[in-house]
């Protein structure tokens, strides 16, 4: 860094004390829970900001948005975001979100969880929610490892990465998440790294506004487990690697966007299709058979509450 400061100034020349002015993100966060638990150089904080920016860009009414997350580092996102938020069980964020959405169709429901949570234990729920084109926005923060539990191999770990359960190198072929999502029926699929702050928020905004099942995969650095075990430096080094090796190819065929260990990989917007959502399909079918007798579930109120 060419412009390093030679001598330490006695007092930092700062006209306004930063602490007096609120950080713009503060009104979107549960400030009584900040600082958060994520490790230095983890990309998750960036994803939270990108999600908030995406919500603002999509002009979603905050009271109408719910965040549902599963278990794992990313699972803690719901707890920090000032929305109706639900921290559910491992892998079950998606069916929980399905129930929440169908019971209250006015809600925009966002599932934010990790690669292990959504595609490992939660895989069965993911493929069905996508098949149904359930109106959900899924943000999967992919750090290629089960980080919270200490760095075990994940369904997305590219071989021969070293993890605590593959001490001699991972050897299973990993999922290609966009390919899996598209093949199951997702109508919007995009992938960015956590460095692409604005591309992330634009994609999240599009996903939020697009009816049906959308997936935004975010490649985020995991310093403490993935980077350390594989001697890839810090999260910052991983971010630099992602910057230099992420090749933007919007519209790339999802079958070609698999990720190999420490090799160049493709990011971009891959799928933007039109398919009727579960609710539209259900309502159309019921109306065609029941006509006027069909009474859709409006939701939002407890049917027999005072």
């Amino acid at each position: 860094m060419s412009d390093t400061v030679t001598k330490a100034p006695e007092r930092l020349a700062e006209p306004i004390r930063a602490e007096d002015l609120p950080h713009p993100m503060e009104k979107w966060l549960r400030m009584d829970r900040i600082p958060h638990i994520w490790c230095p150089t983890c990309g998750l904080g960036t994803v939270v900001t990108a999600l908030v920016e995406g919500i603002k860009e999509a002009q979603i009414e905050p009271d109408r948005l719910a965040v549902v997350s599963g278990i794992g580092c990313t699972g803690r996102v719901a707890g920090y975001m000032k929305f109706d938020s639900f921290h559910t069980t491992h892998g079950r964020a998606l069916p929980f979100a399905t129930g929440l959405r169908l019971s209250n169709p006015k809600m925009k429901v966002v599932v934010v969880s990790g690669d292990g949570d959504i595609f490992g234990i939660g895989g069965n729920h993911f493929i069905h929610a996508a098949r149904r084109n359930m109106d959900l926005t899924v943000i999967c923060v992919n750090n290629f490892i089960y980080a919270m539990t200490g760095g075990q191999v994940a369904p997305t770990t590219p071989g021969p990465a070293n993890t605590s359960t593959t001490p001699f190198g991972a050897f299973e072929p990993p999922f290609n998440l966009p390919y899996l999502a598209e093949s199951c029926g997702a109508v919007y699929v995009a992938r960015w790294t956590s460095l692409d702050v604005r591309r992330m928020s634009h994609s999240i905004a599009k996903a939020l506004l697009k009816p049906g099942f959308s997936l935004v995969e975010i490649i985020a650095p995991c310093s403490t487990l993935y980077a350390r075990r594989n001697r890839l430096g810090s999260g910052l080094d991983l971010l630099k690697f992602y910057q230099q090796n992420a090749i933007i190819q919007n519209g790339a065929k999802t079958a070609d966007v698999g990720i190999d260990f420490q090799r160049p990989f493709i990011v971009g917007e891959f799928v933007d299709a039109e398919r009727p959502t579960w609710e539209e399909l259900m309502r159309k079918q019921m109306k065609s058979v029941l006509g006027e007798k069909f009474i859709p579930h409006e939701g939002g109120e407890c049917s027999s509450c005072e």
Partner: peptide, 24 residues
């Protein structure tokens, strides 16, 4: 910290990138 000789052009990249909401 701000390098004295440099001028910020308010692109806000740091603000959006910061994982700890510590700069704006």
């Amino acid at each position: 910290e701000v390098v004295p000789s440099k001028e910020c052009v308010a692109c806000k990249f740091c603000e959006l990138l910061c994982p700890d909401f510590a700069i704006f």
